[in-house]
């Protein structure tokens, strides 16, 4: 039951792009085509989940016991950067087809603030799934990270669909490109606001 609440809350109610404003740059950058948006979503999903698990463990068994939590930011970004590199190398070796699909997005993910944002949120913030406020345990953190990244994918794919339609419309000159994209996201965010309060 609690996992279900985490999943619904992370995907819809607190959608990472539309409610928390994380990972907006790549969200706009690669959403002009549906196929690239899908590829990027897959890569982000993979990296966010993996990075959250790894940084959670590093924080719990290394930074906290040594009293080095003030180094969280620097440690996490290094972990994420190296993780992305490792994923890239491993993927190239074991699944060239998947690498072809996700490969070009991987280097971009290091500077996607959604990854660092989720990793930091999980270890610093108390969450209120269920009826008490508490820090997430490893299982909950993993589900939260996975659900959050699915929410990222959902928002990105929906938005890419809208943008493909938008590209064929005749928009006023000053609105062309990003301005109309922002206004579209604004309306999408309004729609997602309708989910607030359901969990």
């Amino acid at each position: 039951m609690e996992y279900l609440i985490i999943i619904i809350s992370a995907i819809f109610v607190n959608n990472i792009v539309l409610a928390q404003f994380l990972g907006v740059c790549p969200f706009l950058g690669v959403s002009s085509k549906l196929t690239t948006a899908t590829g990027m979503s897959g890569a982000v999903c993979f990296v966010i989940t993996l990075a959250t698990v790894v940084t959670y463990l590093i924080n719990k068994f290394f930074l906290v016991p040594l009293g080095l939590t003030f180094l969280q930011t620097i440690a996490f970004i290094l972990v994420i950067a190296s993780l992305v590199q490792i994923v890239e190398i491993v993927l190239k070796k074991i699944s060239p087809s998947l690498y072809q699909a996700l490969g070009i997005f991987l280097p971009l993910i290091t500077t996607n603030c959604a990854v660092l944002g989720v990793a930091l949120n999980v270890v610093t913030k108390e969450f209120t799934f269920g009826d008490s406020a508490h820090m997430l345990n490893l299982g909950e953190a993993t589900v939260y990270a996975l659900a959050t990244s699915l929410g990222y994918g959902l928002a990105m794919i929906l938005f890419a669909g809208l943008r493909e339609q938008l590209a064929m419309r005749d928009v006023p000159k000053s609105f062309k490109g990003l301005p109309i994209a922002f206004i579209t996201v604004g309306i999408m965010a309004m729609a997602f606001l309708g989910f607030s309060g359901i969990v």
């Binding site: 913030k125 108390e126 969450f127 209120t128 009826d131 008490s132 406020a133 309060g197």
Partner: peptide, 9 residues
């Protein structure tokens, strides 16, 4: 005193 609010703790 800590309780569960609308958006979190």
């Amino acid at each position: 005193s800590k309780v569960v609010g609308f958006g979190g703790p």
